[in-house]
Nucleic acid binder design. Structure first.
Lengths: 203, 203
DNA sequence: GTGTAATTTTGCCATTTGGTTAAACTATTT
DNA sequence: AAATAGTTTAACCAAATGGCAAAATTACAC
């Protein structure tokens, strides 16, 4: 009983994740989720009361995964070069494993912008601490003076954008050569770090 | 007749653009478009046969607008510094005027990935020419050796990402202070160019 | 003004879709 | 094995939605 129950629930969540990530909330159909899970549609409502509830379960998980743990990496004592390389490499790795995450999160946050307020309450990110560490690097003469938001946006943007814009970039710059594009994404694990460090390091 | 007809059609297109950009194809409702245009729903079908057709009209226009004319700027004889500044500034300007464009285009391309193939046929971008110009800059000792795709992705990504990720960034790094975020976006017109030039210029 | 073509509205239909209810089935307990 | 609780399915419903046909209205030509 217990293991059967859990297994069904997980099966549903797995199928729901696939469908929601691919189609979005508005495009997703409960019937399609049920089919993909190989179960009856009514079972979805038995385990999760509604489409909204089922979606919320998926979204919360996805959002947590998408948000990079910048604080953790940036607050350590390591030199800035090491920090940037560690962040870029690990974040691109995550994206390679979950390439649809960014579009999904962004799409759904546009649909219900108030959701971000709820999420903010639960989260406990501390930008101030990171900003202080960053200022220290600047004062040590390691990097130029750059505000934390700009640096963070630049770092994340450089990592994420090729995944968000994949269909366009792959089409226009790679003639829809998927293999070549995968190689391109891998290259970026070091190239993006080099790019950022060149941009911010004092020489 | 003629001016009335055109006016109605334009009214519809305007309303449709707002709704589609905000809600996406799946979330958009013909009734909502009709309401926003202040007309009867059946009129939508009179001017555009179906929801699909109406959407296509909006999407094609939006996509053209979204795609930056990199070639034009990059092929000129100006020094690389001027090129980068010109591109970044003009592209961010366009995004400031059309902040929802990126999410819309990306969202809809995920829904129908084959659309990109059709678009590619119509477009006439010539990456080779741009790549040659870039190589010239490298050989002139102005910039580091970087592949065209990486450079383009970096440039566009740095411009576009703050618009795509706005709800998240504004929430986490700006405490949902919209004014502050607008200022942040404006700052980027010069900051991003500086960042890129620092990253690629040989010193 | 009258007739004709274009435009707009009303009213409606067929399909889709999230959700519910009651029945059927399974496992567990006693 | 009988009863009970938990799980799954089949059948169905009401609301929403894209689309359509025909009537009504407007604009225009003559």
């Amino acid at each position: 009983m217990s293991e059967q129950e859990l297994s069904t629930e997980k099966t549903i969540l797995e199928a729901a994740k696939k469908v929601f990530l691919d189609k979005g909330f508005d495009g997703a159909r409960m019937q399609e989720i049920a089919d993909k899970a190989g179960i009856n549609k009514a079972l979805l409502h038995y385990y999760f009361r509604s489409k909204d509830k089922l979606f919320d379960a998926i979204f919360e998980e996805a959002f947590k995964q998408f948000l990079p743990n910048i604080s953790e990496i940036m607050i350590s004592n390591k030199p800035i070069e090491e920090k940037v390389r560690a962040f870029v490499s690990s974040y691109i790795d995550m994206l390679l494993k979950n390439p649809y995450l960014p579009v999904f999160v962004i799409r759904e946050l546009q649909r219900k912008p108030d959701a971000i307020v709820e999420i903010l309450k639960k989260s406990k990110i501390n930008p101030i601490q990171v900003a202080l560490t960053l200022k220290q690097h600047t004062e040590d003469g390691q990097i130029i003076d750059i505000s934390l938001p700009h640096l963070i946006v630049n770092m994340i943007g450089l990592c994420v954008f090729p995944f968000i814009g994949r269909p366009i970039i792959e089409g226009f710059l790679f003639n829809n050569n998927t293999e070549a594009y995968n190689a391109f994404l891998l290259e970026r694990k070091t190239l993006v770090a080099d790019f950022i460090l060149n941009a911010i390091k004092l020489k």
